[in-house]
Design a protein around this nucleic acid. Structure first.
Length: 540
RNA sequence: GUCCUUGUAGCUCAGUUGGAUAGAGCAACAGCCUUCUAAGCUGUGGGUCAGGCGUUCGAAUCGCCUCAAGGACACCA
């Protein structure tokens, strides 16, 4: 049980004693910002006073009188009615043993029963390399998956491949054009075709597999180009993502989803909301939470992206997912309510789908924005960026801020190995702790009453916050909170390191206790870095 | 025009869901290595929390209005 939990419980019992019954999350314990306010504080007396129309300080006194004071050095009323808690050293140092005993699994939350989260992210079309926008979605999606699991949720990580649309046709034609070029034959690159270098590379592979077998001009062989191109592109995506430490449990293909008469059946079950107008088929999403109806089948008979995607979301739900989370680019904003509406037509709650919008990444170079276009093949690729600045820096950079905020990616800063990068700060803290531990021949001990320096208390309090941070980050779908925590803990580590000499052969007891403390710190830093997919180097 | 996101120190961002004197990191300046890694630490300066009105014991946080930036409003994906 961590400190906030303990105080929470104490407060609830105290309130029960004086016949006040409140909901559990009405009680808020917060870490005090200033040391003169103790270690933790609660505003419960003020919140209750306005409800019960009594004096907050008097109420606070009543609560204090009836609270169990074990483990507390002091408890006092301050300001307008805050209750400040001063924890005993023994309670504060409990966390060290808790970390050392649980090790890697420290911070793991209780299993959330009856919940299965399906988390879809990246889902980039296999028509080219991943660019920075995808990379941010990948880093955030993958980190979120790790955090949710740590917090106790069951998670399925999923990638949706649109292998049935016009984009793949363009890919096939672009590949065909490049293949023809290798034989000095002309095949017009379609206007919307892909011009990236990677297509030329794939064309060479195509040639070495099939030779000149598919050089006829007819349109009939386009399928073979589509399939070959997609397979190669998808392999590349998987490789890049894998190297970026981003993984998936399931790849779902559009062609598989709409196999057989899935869409016909769906049209049947949803027929009450489907109508024809101007030769197109519409879905009456505006009957729910959308602001207008949406086309599902164009007048030329082709399905829109939306239509099979409904089938896909229903498919995910049919696999027992209780919560769907889509990590999408901010430009998909208009898509949210139409998909929610479609799901509601099928009897699901609006909340069964949650969308995390990833705001645009703007690339800035020489003070000016660099425009990206995947089609023209001039986009900054994830692979290139990773090669320049390393996986750790890229992942940390993309995750360290709220997904909803715009991200200016300064190309020069990112492409130069810069010591101002916060990831080094954290890794350095870890490496330092690790170095001291490896140098020492003094055994760890649990004489934590010897740890009385300010910086040591900061570390202990920081460690005991970890459980709560993990839960918060999971609940709010906010991986950046882990980064904030890492910075804070690393800062305390550096402060402690600068102020307190750890290894001292003349004081084995204190040294042993300090070694236990820094061992715990190194475990938690590594643990937290793992949640955002960043490595913890033993040496730097 | 409607909707979404954002607006906090020169720059990049936090701010524990309404709490106490608004915080970090860069950048600037001044210090700290005979001792476990100076990729570090300590200190100084830096603020109309975009602006206004309201809600209450209390607002950067909640509500309304205004301003600014970006995005979305397809028989595109």
């Amino acid at each position: 049980m961590y400190n906030e939990e303990l105080l929470h419980k104490k407060l609830r019992f105290a309130l029960q004693k004086i016949d006040i019954d409140v909901k559990e999350d009405f009680i808020i314990i917060e870490a005090a910002k200033d040391k003169i306010h103790g270690d933790y504080a609660s505003n419960i007396a003020m919140k209750l006073a306005s409800k019960l129309k009594t004096n907050p300080r008097a109420l606070a006194q009543q609560i204090i009188d009836s609270i169990d004071k074990e483990g507390l050095d002091k408890i006092e009323i301050a300001g307008p009615g805050f209750i400040n808690f001063f924890m005993s050293n023994e309670i504060l140092s409990n966390v060290i043993d808790r970390v050392l005993n649980t090790n890697d699994s420290f911070g793991t939350g209780d299993k959330k029963t009856g919940k299965l989260i399906n988390l879809e992210y990246v889902s980039a079309n296999p028509t080219g390399d991943l660019h920075l926008g995808h990379a941010r979605g990948a880093a955030i999606g993958d980190s979120l998956a790790r955090i949710l699991k740590k917090a106790g949720y069951s998670v399925i990580r999923e990638y949706y491949v649109n292998d049935a649309g016009a984009q793949i046709l363009h890919l096939g034609e672009s590949l065909k054009a490049r293949y023809f070029e290798l034989y000095d034959k002309k095949y017009d690159l379609p206007e919307d075709g892909y011009q990236g270098e990677d297509i030329i590379e794939i064309a060479k592979q195509f040639k070495s597999k099939y030779g000149d077998k598919y050089l006829e001009e007819s349109d009939e062989n386009i399928e073979i180009f589509k399939e070959f191109g997609m397979e190669k592109e998808l392999d590349k995506l998987k490789n890049d993502l894998n190297e970026f430490r981003v993984n998936f449990d399931v790849f779902s293909f559009e062609t598989t989803i709409r196999q057989g008469n899935v869409l016909t059946n769906l049209a049947n079950t949803m027929k009450d909301y489907i109508y024809k107008k101007d030769g197109a088929t519409y879905l009456a999403t505006s009957k729910f939470v959308d602001d207008k109806d949406r086309v599902i089948i164009k007048s030329n008979g082709e399905a829109t992206y939306f239509w099979p995607d409904i089938a896909y979301h229903l498919n995910k739900l049919s696999r027992k997912a209780t919560n769907l989370i889509d990590v999408l680019g901010a430009d998909h904003h208009g898509y949210i309510n139409r998909m929610k509406s479609a799901l509601m037509m099928n009897g699901y709650r609006e909340e069964s789908l949650e969308v995390e919008l990833i705001q645009m990444v703007r690339i800035v170079k020489d003070g000016e924005e660099v425009k990206m276009s995947k089609r023209l093949g001039n986009a900054i690729k994830l692979r290139d960026l990773v090669q320049e600045v390393g996986i750790d820096a890229v992942r940390y950079f993309f995750v360290s801020r709220d997904a909803a905020t715009h991200l200016d990616f300064d190309l020069e800063l990112a492409l130069s190995q810069s010591s101002s990068n916060p990831v080094f700060y954290a890794q350095y803290a870890y490496a330092r702790m690790n170095n001291v531990l490896s140098l020492s021949t003094i055994p760890l001990n649990d004489k934590y009453n010897l740890l009385i320096d300010e910086t040591e208390f900061s570390l202990m309090k920081s460690l005991s916050e970890y459980d709560k941070i993990v839960q918060d980050a999971a609940k709010e779908r906010a991986p950046y909170k882990i980064c904030n925590y890492i910075q804070k803990l690393s800062g305390y580590v550096h402060e402690f390191y600068a102020k307190c000499r750890i290894l001292d052969v003349n004081n084995v007891d204190l040294t042993g206790a300090r070694l236990s403390l820094i061992k715990a710190c190194s475990i938690v830093i590594k643990n937290a870095l793992e949640l955002i997919g960043v490595s913890a180097p033993e040496k730097m």
